[in-house]
Computed example of a mutant assay.
Amino acid sequence: MFENKKIRLGIAPIGWTNDDMPELGKENSFEQCISEVALAGFTGTEVGGRFPTDPVILKKSLELRRIKIASKWFSSFLCTTPYEENEEAFIKQLYFLELLGANRINVCELSYNLFAKECSMFGDKKPVATDEEWQSLTEGLNKLGKIATERGFKLCFHHHMATVVQTIEETQRLLDHTNPEDVYLCYDTGHFTFSSEDAVEAARLFGPRIGHVHLKDIRRERMEAAIAEGYKFRKAVLEGCFTVPGDGFVDFMGVFKALEESGYEGWFLVEAEQDPALANPFEYALKARQYIKKMTGL
Protein backbone atom coordinates (compact mmCIF):
# COMPACT_ATOMS: atom_id res chain seq x y z
CA MET A 1 0.00 0.00 0.00
CA PHE A 2 1.12 3.56 -0.79
CA GLU A 3 3.74 2.24 -3.20
CA ASN A 4 5.61 5.08 -4.91
CA LYS A 5 3.92 7.56 -2.56
CA LYS A 6 5.90 9.87 -0.31
CA ILE A 7 4.51 8.94 3.10
CA ARG A 8 6.25 9.71 6.37
CA LEU A 9 5.25 8.48 9.81
CA GLY A 10 5.22 10.54 12.97
CA ILE A 11 3.59 10.66 16.37
CA ALA A 12 2.49 13.72 18.32
CA PRO A 13 3.90 14.51 21.78
CA ILE A 14 0.41 14.71 23.29
CA GLY A 15 0.68 11.08 24.42
CA TRP A 16 3.60 12.09 26.65
CA THR A 17 2.54 15.57 27.78
CA ASN A 18 -0.81 17.26 27.25
CA ASP A 19 -0.67 20.98 26.43
CA ASP A 20 -4.36 21.49 27.23
CA MET A 21 -4.03 19.78 30.62
CA PRO A 22 -0.39 20.28 31.69
CA GLU A 23 -0.80 18.07 34.75
CA LEU A 24 -1.04 15.08 32.41
CA GLY A 25 2.49 13.84 31.80
CA LYS A 26 4.21 16.52 33.84
CA GLU A 27 6.76 13.88 34.82
CA ASN A 28 7.74 13.23 31.17
CA SER A 29 10.58 15.33 29.76
CA PHE A 30 11.02 16.63 26.23
CA GLU A 31 14.10 14.43 25.84
CA GLN A 32 12.22 11.33 26.91
CA CYS A 33 9.43 12.10 24.49
CA ILE A 34 11.53 12.51 21.35
CA SER A 35 13.86 9.63 22.29
CA GLU A 36 10.87 7.29 22.61
CA VAL A 37 9.39 8.64 19.38
CA ALA A 38 12.58 7.53 17.62
CA LEU A 39 12.83 4.21 19.49
CA ALA A 40 9.26 3.35 18.49
CA GLY A 41 10.19 3.69 14.83
CA PHE A 42 8.76 7.09 13.94
CA THR A 43 10.67 9.75 12.03
CA GLY A 44 8.60 12.80 12.88
CA THR A 45 6.60 14.64 15.49
CA GLU A 46 4.73 17.91 15.99
CA VAL A 47 5.80 20.80 18.17
CA GLY A 48 4.66 20.37 21.78
CA GLY A 49 4.30 22.89 24.56
CA ARG A 50 7.34 21.57 26.41
CA PHE A 51 9.62 21.65 23.41
CA PRO A 52 12.48 24.17 23.48
CA THR A 53 11.37 27.52 22.11
CA ASP A 54 14.79 28.21 20.64
CA PRO A 55 14.67 26.60 17.17
CA VAL A 56 18.45 26.07 17.13
CA ILE A 57 18.36 24.03 20.35
CA LEU A 58 15.24 22.18 19.26
CA LYS A 59 16.63 21.32 15.84
CA LYS A 60 19.87 19.97 17.31
CA SER A 61 17.99 17.72 19.74
CA LEU A 62 15.79 16.39 16.95
CA GLU A 63 18.66 15.82 14.53
CA LEU A 64 20.51 13.74 17.12
CA ARG A 65 17.55 11.35 17.01
CA ARG A 66 16.85 11.70 13.27
CA ILE A 67 13.46 13.22 13.97
CA LYS A 68 11.77 15.89 11.84
CA ILE A 69 9.10 18.39 12.78
CA ALA A 70 6.05 17.68 10.65
CA SER A 71 3.84 20.58 11.70
CA LYS A 72 2.56 22.72 14.54
CA TRP A 73 -0.84 23.63 15.94
CA PHE A 74 -1.98 27.23 15.46
CA SER A 75 -4.98 28.63 17.33
CA SER A 76 -6.96 31.07 15.21
CA PHE A 77 -9.73 33.36 16.44
CA LEU A 78 -10.88 34.63 13.08
CA CYS A 79 -14.55 34.61 14.06
CA THR A 80 -14.11 36.93 17.02
CA THR A 81 -10.86 38.93 16.79
CA PRO A 82 -9.44 41.27 14.15
CA TYR A 83 -7.78 39.49 11.24
CA GLU A 84 -4.57 41.45 11.76
CA GLU A 85 -4.02 39.91 15.20
CA ASN A 86 -4.34 36.43 13.74
CA GLU A 87 -1.98 37.23 10.88
CA GLU A 88 0.74 38.60 13.15
CA ALA A 89 0.71 35.47 15.34
CA PHE A 90 0.50 33.20 12.28
CA ILE A 91 3.56 34.70 10.61
CA LYS A 92 5.58 34.25 13.81
CA GLN A 93 4.74 30.55 13.81
CA LEU A 94 5.63 30.20 10.13
CA TYR A 95 9.02 31.74 10.82
CA PHE A 96 9.63 29.32 13.68
CA LEU A 97 8.63 26.34 11.53
CA GLU A 98 10.75 27.52 8.61
CA LEU A 99 13.82 27.36 10.81
CA LEU A 100 12.95 23.74 11.61
CA GLY A 101 12.42 22.73 7.99
CA ALA A 102 8.68 22.05 8.32
CA ASN A 103 6.13 22.86 5.62
CA ARG A 104 2.75 22.27 7.29
CA ILE A 105 0.84 24.33 9.85
CA ASN A 106 -2.41 23.11 11.41
CA VAL A 107 -4.94 25.87 12.03
CA CYS A 108 -7.86 25.29 14.39
CA GLU A 109 -10.53 27.93 14.97
CA LEU A 110 -10.91 28.32 18.72
CA SER A 111 -13.55 31.03 18.92
CA TYR A 112 -16.18 29.68 21.35
CA ASN A 113 -14.28 26.41 21.89
CA LEU A 114 -15.23 24.27 24.88
CA PHE A 115 -11.86 22.68 25.61
CA ALA A 116 -11.68 24.06 29.15
CA LYS A 117 -15.39 24.66 29.75
CA GLU A 118 -17.30 22.92 32.51
CA CYS A 119 -20.15 21.89 30.25
CA SER A 120 -21.10 19.21 27.77
CA MET A 121 -19.67 19.47 24.26
CA PHE A 122 -22.71 17.73 22.76
CA GLY A 123 -26.19 18.77 21.64
CA ASP A 124 -27.12 22.42 21.94
CA LYS A 125 -23.90 23.11 23.88
CA LYS A 126 -21.77 22.58 20.77
CA PRO A 127 -20.26 25.87 19.55
CA VAL A 128 -21.72 27.39 16.39
CA ALA A 129 -20.79 30.42 14.31
CA THR A 130 -23.09 32.95 12.69
CA ASP A 131 -23.10 33.50 8.94
CA GLU A 132 -21.09 36.68 9.45
CA GLU A 133 -18.54 34.80 11.55
CA TRP A 134 -18.30 32.08 8.93
CA GLN A 135 -17.48 34.74 6.38
CA SER A 136 -14.77 36.19 8.63
CA LEU A 137 -13.38 32.69 9.16
CA THR A 138 -13.21 31.67 5.51
CA GLU A 139 -11.96 35.03 4.26
CA GLY A 140 -9.32 35.06 6.98
CA LEU A 141 -8.22 31.53 6.13
CA ASN A 142 -7.86 32.47 2.48
CA LYS A 143 -5.55 35.33 3.44
CA LEU A 144 -3.51 33.23 5.86
CA GLY A 145 -3.41 30.40 3.35
CA LYS A 146 -2.00 32.65 0.66
CA ILE A 147 0.75 33.80 3.04
CA ALA A 148 1.52 30.17 3.85
CA THR A 149 1.61 29.15 0.19
CA GLU A 150 3.95 31.99 -0.71
CA ARG A 151 6.35 30.74 1.98
CA GLY A 152 6.26 27.12 0.87
CA PHE A 153 3.73 25.90 3.45
CA LYS A 154 0.36 24.23 3.35
CA LEU A 155 -2.18 25.66 5.77
CA CYS A 156 -4.14 22.62 6.96
CA PHE A 157 -7.38 23.38 8.77
CA HIS A 158 -8.00 21.11 11.76
CA HIS A 159 -11.67 20.23 12.31
CA HIS A 160 -12.05 19.40 16.00
CA MET A 161 -14.54 18.31 18.63
CA ALA A 162 -15.96 21.13 20.76
CA THR A 163 -15.33 23.81 18.10
CA VAL A 164 -17.36 25.58 15.42
CA VAL A 165 -15.93 23.31 12.69
CA GLN A 166 -16.45 19.74 13.81
CA THR A 167 -18.78 17.80 11.53
CA ILE A 168 -18.54 16.73 7.89
CA GLU A 169 -21.16 19.35 7.02
CA GLU A 170 -19.21 22.13 8.73
CA THR A 171 -15.94 20.98 7.19
CA GLN A 172 -17.56 20.90 3.75
CA ARG A 173 -18.85 24.42 4.23
CA LEU A 174 -15.39 25.63 5.17
CA LEU A 175 -13.72 23.96 2.20
CA ASP A 176 -16.43 25.15 -0.21
CA HIS A 177 -15.69 28.76 0.75
CA THR A 178 -11.90 28.65 0.80
CA ASN A 179 -9.32 28.56 -1.96
CA PRO A 180 -8.24 24.95 -2.68
CA GLU A 181 -4.78 26.19 -3.68
CA ASP A 182 -4.18 27.81 -0.30
CA VAL A 183 -6.36 26.05 2.29
CA TYR A 184 -6.11 22.31 2.93
CA LEU A 185 -7.54 19.97 5.54
CA CYS A 186 -5.84 18.41 8.53
CA TYR A 187 -7.95 15.26 8.42
CA ASP A 188 -8.43 13.59 11.82
CA THR A 189 -9.94 10.11 12.00
CA GLY A 190 -10.80 10.43 15.68
CA HIS A 191 -12.52 13.79 15.64
CA PHE A 192 -14.78 12.82 12.74
CA THR A 193 -15.63 9.53 14.47
CA PHE A 194 -16.32 11.18 17.81
CA SER A 195 -18.58 13.62 15.99
CA SER A 196 -20.70 10.62 14.90
CA GLU A 197 -19.34 10.85 11.36
CA ASP A 198 -17.90 8.14 9.10
CA ALA A 199 -14.14 8.68 8.92
CA VAL A 200 -13.85 6.63 5.72
CA GLU A 201 -16.59 8.66 4.03
CA ALA A 202 -14.81 11.86 5.08
CA ALA A 203 -11.50 10.63 3.66
CA ARG A 204 -13.19 9.87 0.33
CA LEU A 205 -15.12 13.12 0.29
CA PHE A 206 -12.25 15.42 1.16
CA GLY A 207 -9.35 13.44 -0.34
CA PRO A 208 -8.07 16.06 -2.81
CA ARG A 209 -8.01 18.73 -0.07
CA ILE A 210 -6.25 16.68 2.62
CA GLY A 211 -2.81 18.12 3.34
CA HIS A 212 -2.05 16.47 6.67
CA VAL A 213 -3.38 13.40 8.49
CA HIS A 214 -3.92 12.72 12.19
CA LEU A 215 -4.47 9.05 13.01
CA LYS A 216 -6.54 8.75 16.17
CA ASP A 217 -8.70 5.83 17.31
CA ILE A 218 -11.81 5.85 19.49
CA ARG A 219 -12.96 3.33 22.10
CA ARG A 220 -16.59 2.74 21.16
CA GLU A 221 -18.06 2.07 24.63
CA ARG A 222 -16.39 5.11 26.11
CA MET A 223 -17.51 7.32 23.24
CA GLU A 224 -21.07 6.09 23.65
CA ALA A 225 -20.91 6.88 27.37
CA ALA A 226 -19.54 10.33 26.60
CA ILE A 227 -22.42 11.09 24.25
CA ALA A 228 -25.07 9.61 26.54
CA GLU A 229 -23.80 11.42 29.63
CA GLY A 230 -22.81 14.67 27.89
CA TYR A 231 -19.12 14.72 28.73
CA LYS A 232 -17.10 17.89 28.64
CA PHE A 233 -14.06 17.67 26.38
CA ARG A 234 -11.47 17.16 29.10
CA LYS A 235 -13.54 14.43 30.72
CA ALA A 236 -13.56 12.59 27.40
CA VAL A 237 -9.76 12.63 27.45
CA LEU A 238 -9.52 11.56 31.08
CA GLU A 239 -12.03 8.74 30.58
CA GLY A 240 -9.93 7.25 27.79
CA CYS A 241 -12.20 7.92 24.82
CA PHE A 242 -9.19 8.53 22.55
CA THR A 243 -6.46 6.01 21.79
CA VAL A 244 -3.90 5.04 19.15
CA PRO A 245 -4.76 3.30 15.85
CA GLY A 246 -5.72 -0.33 16.27
CA ASP A 247 -6.99 0.07 19.83
CA GLY A 248 -10.51 1.21 18.97
CA PHE A 249 -13.18 0.80 16.30
CA VAL A 250 -12.16 3.22 13.51
CA ASP A 251 -11.96 1.45 10.14
CA PHE A 252 -8.33 2.29 9.41
CA MET A 253 -8.05 -0.08 6.46
CA GLY A 254 -10.91 1.81 4.83
CA VAL A 255 -9.23 5.11 5.72
CA PHE A 256 -5.89 4.03 4.28
CA LYS A 257 -7.50 2.77 1.07
CA ALA A 258 -9.40 6.05 0.61
CA LEU A 259 -6.26 8.10 1.17
CA GLU A 260 -4.27 5.92 -1.21
CA GLU A 261 -6.95 6.29 -3.90
CA SER A 262 -6.90 10.07 -3.50
CA GLY A 263 -3.13 10.10 -4.09
CA TYR A 264 -2.30 11.46 -0.65
CA GLU A 265 1.34 12.18 0.08
CA GLY A 266 2.69 13.63 3.30
CA TRP A 267 2.68 12.79 6.99
CA PHE A 268 0.65 10.27 8.92
CA LEU A 269 0.77 11.56 12.50
CA VAL A 270 -0.48 9.34 15.30
CA GLU A 271 -2.22 11.58 17.81
CA ALA A 272 -4.07 10.28 20.84
CA GLU A 273 -5.00 12.37 23.86
CA GLN A 274 -4.53 9.97 26.76
CA ASP A 275 -3.42 10.14 30.37
CA PRO A 276 0.19 8.87 30.21
CA ALA A 277 -0.12 7.55 33.77
CA LEU A 278 -2.73 5.10 32.48
CA ALA A 279 -1.50 4.60 28.91
CA ASN A 280 2.29 4.34 28.85
CA PRO A 281 3.36 6.59 25.95
CA PHE A 282 6.18 4.38 24.68
CA GLU A 283 4.08 1.23 24.88
CA TYR A 284 1.25 2.85 22.94
CA ALA A 285 3.66 4.36 20.41
CA LEU A 286 4.98 0.86 19.71
CA LYS A 287 1.43 -0.48 19.37
CA ALA A 288 0.57 2.22 16.87
CA ARG A 289 3.74 1.72 14.84
CA GLN A 290 3.24 -2.04 14.65
CA TYR A 291 -0.41 -1.64 13.66
CA ILE A 292 0.37 0.83 10.85
CA LYS A 293 3.04 -1.50 9.50
CA LYS A 294 0.61 -4.43 9.60
CA MET A 295 -2.11 -2.45 7.80
CA THR A 296 0.00 -0.66 5.20
CA GLY A 297 3.48 -2.19 5.08
CA LEU A 298 4.94 1.25 5.82
Rank of each mutant, 00 (worst) to 15 (best):
R8W: 08
G10R: 13
I11H: 01
P13T: 13
I14A: 02
M21Y: 08
E23R: 04
V37P: 02
F42V: 02
V47E: 09
V47M: 05
R50L: 12
I57T: 13
K59E: 10
R65G: 02
R66N: 15
I69W: 00
S75F: 04
S75A: 15
S76A: 15
C79V: 02
T80F: 04
P82A: 04
Y83G: 11
A89L: 14
F90D: 09
L94N: 05
Y95M: 14
E98Q: 07
E98K: 11
L99A: 10
S120N: 04
D124C: 01
D124H: 11
A129H: 12
W134C: 02
W134V: 11
W134R: 10
L141H: 06
F153T: 03
K154A: 14
C156N: 12
H159C: 15
T167S: 15
L174W: 06
L174K: 06
L175H: 01
H177F: 07
C186S: 14
H191T: 08
F192L: 14
T193W: 04
T193S: 02
L215T: 06
R222E: 09
E224R: 10
A225E: 15
A226W: 04
I227P: 03
G230H: 06
A236M: 10
G248D: 00
V250P: 01
F252S: 00
K257H: 07
E271Q: 13
A272C: 04
Q274V: 03
A277L: 07
N280E: 15
N280L: 12
F282W: 04
Y284M: 04
K287E: 06
K294H: 06
